[in-house]
């Protein structure tokens, strides 16, 4: 068990190492570097030399990679180009804002998804399933920016219930932020819930068709006792991984949603830093987002391991 956990963590670290190599060499290989893109037309002569000197771009690539990676390992991402600010200071409040948005969406989304998934599976092909499944298919196929735009149009402009756009400064406290995030949370959790509900549905249906559930029915176990004791524990286990992948996949969708609602989080920073051609910030964002992805997957793996008694005994035997 211990070695298995260690192996998973090690694999995650290797993945992150490759990500850092990819982002670093990607920026290196693509035409234009931080200085030429930042200075644009003035990128010649003394100004270019000074910029190279300032950023240390005149040293060989591998040396820069090593010093950059050493900084990242100590939690220091260096300086951004445009504001001459420490990237850590730029990132801090953004990470917090995005975490608030994401955790609110997950806290609301997961219970609803479980409920909907179980309902649709137990009433498979009946009216509740048909209605809920149609709605979930629609909300998961339509792009985030469309559902977000429609939400603003209907709720904020036509019904005038909520403000359509978030107008808070980046460094605002959580209590001030919360009333502003209702629409973004609805937009994100709608898509997430739809994906997860479908996974839970198919997982529950699979377990319901298995022999031991048939046996339980034949034995005369009360229906709801059977559902809660025999079906759900087995059905939700494989769903954990899928839920993790869905959350990780949403990282991309959150970028778009944040832009639609003008929300001051990591997503908008992605767009801003790319528009400003602030490559050091882009690199930092790539590493951070990839670490989130890797750690969510790692947590899901470990949870599956811990919750699955069969895997545990298998490891002990070894």
């Amino acid at each position: 068990m211990f070695f298995l956990v260690l192996k998973r963590i090690l694999l995650g670290l290797i993945t992150l190492f490759i990500v850092s190599l990819i982002t670093f060499s990607g920026v290196e290989v693509l035409p234009g570097d931080a200085c030429t893109t930042y200075l644009e037309r003035e990128a010649y002569g003394a100004a270019l030399e000074a910029c190279y000197e300032r950023l240390g771009l005149n040293t060989p690539a591998y040396e820069r990679y090593i010093s950059w990676a050493a900084g990242v390992l100590q939690g220091d991402f260096g300086y951004s180009l445009s504001g001459e600010m420490r990237i850590n200071d730029v990132l801090g409040p953004r990470v917090k804002n995005s975490m608030v948005l994401a955790s609110a969406s997950i806290l609301i989304g997961i219970p609803i998804a479980l409920l909907l998934g179980i309902i649709t599976a137990l009433w498979r092909d009946k009216l509740p399933d048909i209605i809920i499944s149609t709605v979930t298919i629609f909300s998961m196929t339509i792009p985030e920016f469309i559902s977000a735009t429609l939400l603003i149009l209907i709720v904020a402009i036509w019904l005038e219930w909520l403000p359509g756009i978030v107008i808070v400064p980046t460094g605002v406290s959580i209590s001030e932020l919360l009333p502003n995030i209702i629409l973004p949370v609805i937009a994100i959790s709608m898509i997430m819930t739809a994906h997860m509900a479908r996974m839970v549905r198919s997982s529950v249906i699979q377990v319901m068709a298995s022999d031991y559930v048939q046996m339980a029915i034949l034995k005369g176990v009360p229906y709801w006792k059977m559902v809660f004791k025999h079906v759900l524990p087995n059905a939700l286990l494989p769903a954990i991984n899928v839920v993790a992948l869905t959350i990780a996949w949403l990282l991309g969708g959150v970028v778009v949603t944040e832009v639609v609602f003008n929300y001051p989080g990591l997503g908008r920073l992605v767009i801003e830093s790319i528009s400003n051609r602030d490559l050091p910030v882009v690199q930092a964002l790539a590493i951070i987002l990839a670490s989130i992805y890797v750690s969510i997957n790692l947590i899901a793996d470990l949870m599956t391991l811990m919750l699955n008694p069969r895997l545990k005994s298998l490891q002990i035997k070894k």
């Binding site: 992150l16 990780a248 991309g252 987002l289």
Partner: peptide, 9 residues
């Protein structure tokens, strides 16, 4: 590793 970089970035 490629999968863990958000496609949009």
């Amino acid at each position: 590793a490629f999968l863990s970089i958000p496609w949009i970035l």
